[in-house]
Design a protein around this nucleic acid. Sequence first.
DNA 1: AGCAATCATGCAATAAGTTGCATAACCTAA
DNA 2: TTAGGTTATGCAACTTATTGCATGATTGCT
Lengths: 184, 184
Amino acid sequence: MALSHAIMTALLEDDMSGYELAKAFDVSLGFFWHASHQQIYQQLHKLAEQGLLDKETVVQRSRPDKILYRLTEAGREELAQWVFGPSRVQEAKDDLWVKLYNLSEANLAHLSGELRQRRDEMMQRLYLYEKIRRRHYAEPDSLPLRRKGVYLALLAGIRQGEQFLAWCDEALSMLSNIDSPSSP
Amino acid sequence: MALSHAIMTALLEDDMSGYELAKAFDVSLGFFWHASHQQIYQQLHKLAEQGLLDKETVVQRSRPDKILYRLTEAGREELAQWVFGPSRVQEAKDDLWVKLYNLSEANLAHLSGELRQRRDEMMQRLYLYEKIRRRHYAEPDSLPLRRKGVYLALLAGIRQGEQFLAWCDEALSMLSNIDSPSSP
DNA sequence: AGCAATCATGCAATAAGTTGCATAACCTAA
DNA sequence: TTAGGTTATGCAACTTATTGCATGATTGCT
């Protein structure tokens, strides 16, 4: 059960509503994790039931009411313990790799297109994450310990992304050098 | 539904039993995908029911009987169509990143240990995949088209792995430079 | 005036994936 | 000889994740 711990982690510093969590997930942990709002709401209910989170309804004018969640002491302890627990390597299970195994003349153009699109998406992500890095993690050595961990995760994401870009270029160049069967 | 397509992809070249598929998954698609045998058996039943695979029971002496699965024409067509369908980026959802967000003096030593372990595991994987690369993909430009796709996927896995190693070293060196709170 | 987007939460049904167990025969090494 | 590993498939119960829908006010754009 890892999503619940990701949620608790996101609540370490700020109390948030489900809606805010879903957005925070997209930027902060977003490089490594994605969760739909439905999933987040479901997990929040469970965590609150288990006493790991406290609810607090915040009435808003001109906006629907929201429910703020806050880590309880029990939640903090559970999270701290969880770090010592086992965790195994999780493969990305990305369709792209499976599709590549099916490369053929029929889908060559399509897959090249998909690669170009992935490349563009990754560029945009990297742009965002590099900005965060420069703004908040310019001097990693002087960060407090916990932030150093966040920095290292961010760095892993950036490096992964840059590696992916380079691979895309290589793959695209290889694919563009293939003669289509209809050409002489 | 991507596992089913990964299974069909694995059956493109060879007919296999569930057991053989599970093992093939660990080596070939293993860099990008993992599936338990239960999951594979379940999917095989479904795919056979849908007419995408054919079953054939092979009686063996000195071994339990096995059930060979073969792609049907319908299966091949479904797979070919699927390649043109949408696919989105899938995050790895690896606990490691979430754990890093929780870095503290209490778990610093533990997380360093986990990093070292991950690094070792990745080294072993890379060793295996580099061997496959040298043996079967030494001259990628002269491969038939489909194998070029497999090569590109393999290459992505290798590059990703190498990047991860480099990141691990950087992370470990950063973490080892932290004074523990009990030392002067 | 109307339309899309944002804020905010949720239910219900289904699909996908995990965990634990069960069976059964052979092979190998201590 | 007996314990552990490999080959081989499967059920049942459970958790996790996805898909599709519903609601409803406000804000900003055209």
